[in-house]
Structure formats: structure tokens, C-alpha cells
Design a protein around this nucleic acid. Structure first.
Lengths: 137, 137
DNA sequence: ATTCTAGTTTATAATTATTCTAAACTAGTA
DNA sequence: TACTAGTTTAGAATAATTATAAACTAGAAT
């Protein structure tokens, strides 16, 4: 449970002016027990559901991009046409169900790697993600 | 090195009528020593470079989709706007360099997993892919 | 408080990647 | 040689995202 002040600090700490729109979006994203996945479209719906004053779709896109750059959310790897985001920024993995186009989190400790390759020269590993694609049994 | 006959058989075996266009595209994709990554756009360029008779972009898309369904190519997980495909259909993994938006293959045996989670009920694992995102050192 | 300004939001247009449409074409069979 | 179902094609349509530029606002300066 994040208070408004915390949210404002979070925004300020990443050089994002705490506007009404950003605060509202941040609340929807971060003021929750559980992390979740979303797209620009789904976030737009959530944010604007029965709201007197709407936030424009352009702002949704701008804010998602800004939050992503600031590291408050992360983009998920998929092979779908839309961009998926995750409010869980801790390293973790995913099940992907191509039938339902649904991603589910896999807890970090559920996957253990024994061996990984060395990164190419001049590069280091930023992140490692395992995606397990599913199909009907 | 795949002969025209082999390519025609490959097409027939997956119920794809071996048309001029499909044969030409299949040659560009499969008649190579090394597997590689491509997009619809890049394939379109490759296929139509200094060609007297062009293959339409719609056919490129149709053929890529058909080859994917037939399992001759696979789609790669990314968080870019375009769809990336891989002519390497053996299980393997990827480095992803977000700066250059470049994917590189990691050989299957370079990654060893010690523990993976059980799939949800009614589902089995179709594929497991590890994506290692890179950044500058 | 009032003014100012850079940063932000907004509606809308533009762009990009992809899919759809339906007419023309063709591989393979009759 | 004719037929037909499958395929290709140009172009239109759609979907997701990004760009534009005018209006607005948070926060600093006065």
C-alpha cells in the first residue's frame, strides 16, 4: 500500500513531475498487493473506468514509456502485436499460453540455472528471462 | 545445401503447394549453411533485391505465416514492434542487445537448467527459451 | 499572490506493421 | 485443354504506436 506521498517521491526521484495524471496512473499500477501485467490499452480502460475527467491515450503511452525508462515497470518479451508490461520489476520468469495469449509469472526461485554463457565482449548481462511456452496436454 | 527437389518436398509435406514464390522464399530461408533471423520487411528486401519479377509483400507475409504454422521457422520473443523469425527451429536461446535491437543465438548446450516449474494443470511445456538481455559494461 | 516558463497533456494526424479483400492467376488434376 | 481450388497480388483497411503543435499546469521566481 503506497501513500500519495510515496508515489510523489517515486516520481520525483526519477525526474518525473508529479502531475495529476501520473499520480493517478501510478496509483493504479503500484498501489496493490499483487503485481500484474498490462498493455497500454488495458491500462487505459482501468484508468478511465467511470472517471469524470479522462486521461488521454497519448498520456497513457507517454507515462508507460516514462515509467519503463525509470525502471518502475518492465516490458515483457512476447511474440504478440501489443506491448506487454509488468509491474513486477524483480527478476522473474513467465509461462506463456499462446492459445489464451496469457502470461503468468513464475517465481524466481522456481527456475534454477546451472550454466549460462559468457556475454559477448564489452557487454554484461542486464537481465535473464526464461519463457516457458505452453500447449494443451 | 538444399536442392530444389528437397524444397519442393518440404513444401508438399506440409500441404503447401510449391509455387514459384514459395520455392524462391524457401531457398532464401533454408538454402544456407547458417541459420539466421529475419523480419517480414528484411525478407522482402532479400527476396526482391535485383529481381525482375517481384514477390508482393502480402505473399511474404502469407508465406512466413504458412512456414511458421508448418514449423519450418519459429517466431522469436522480443519486445520490439516487429515480428522476428528464426530459421533455426531447434531449441536454443538468445542474447538480446537492446541498443542495437540485435538478437544472437546461444547454443542449446550453453544453457543448462537445474530446476524448472511444473506447468499448470492441463498444460504441457511446448518450449523453453532463455533470453539474456545485455547492456554496455 | 502573480507571473513566468519548461515540462506535460491533449486531440488529432501520421506512421508503422500487419491483415483483409476480392480480382487475377496458376498448379495440378480431370 | 479445360477446370478448379489454392495462391498471389495491389491496394484498402485495421491496429498499435508515435508525432505534432496548441493548450494547460507545476513549481520556481518575482
Amino acid at each position: 500500500m503506497q501513500q500519495k506521498k510515496e508515489i510523489i517521491n517515486k516520481l520525483r526521484s526519477s525526474n518525473l513531475r508529479p502531475t495529476k495524471q501520473r499520480i493517478l496512473i501510478a496509483k493504479k499500477l503500484f498501489d496493490r498487493k499483487e503485481t500484474f501485467h498490462f498493455t497500454a490499452e488495458s491500462l487505459n480502460k482501468t484508468v478511465n473506468k467511470k472517471m469524470q475527467k479522462r486521461i488521454s491515450l497519448a498520456t497513457i503511452y507517454n507515462t508507460v514509456e516514462a515509467f519503463k525508462k525509470a525502471g518502475h515497470i518492465r516490458e515483457i518479451l512476447t511474440n504478440t502485436s501489443k506491448s506487454y508490461y509488468d509491474t513486477n520489476i524483480k527478476s522473474h520468469h513467465h509461462f506463456y499460453d499462446p492459445d489464451k495469449k496469457k502470461l503468468t509469472d513464475i517465481d524466481y526461485q522456481e527456475v534454477v540455472l546451472k550454466k549460462i554463457p559468457n556475454p559477448p565482449k564489452g557487454k554484461k548481462i542486464k537481465d535473464l528471462e526464461v519463457v516457458i511456452s505452453l500447449q494443451k496436454k
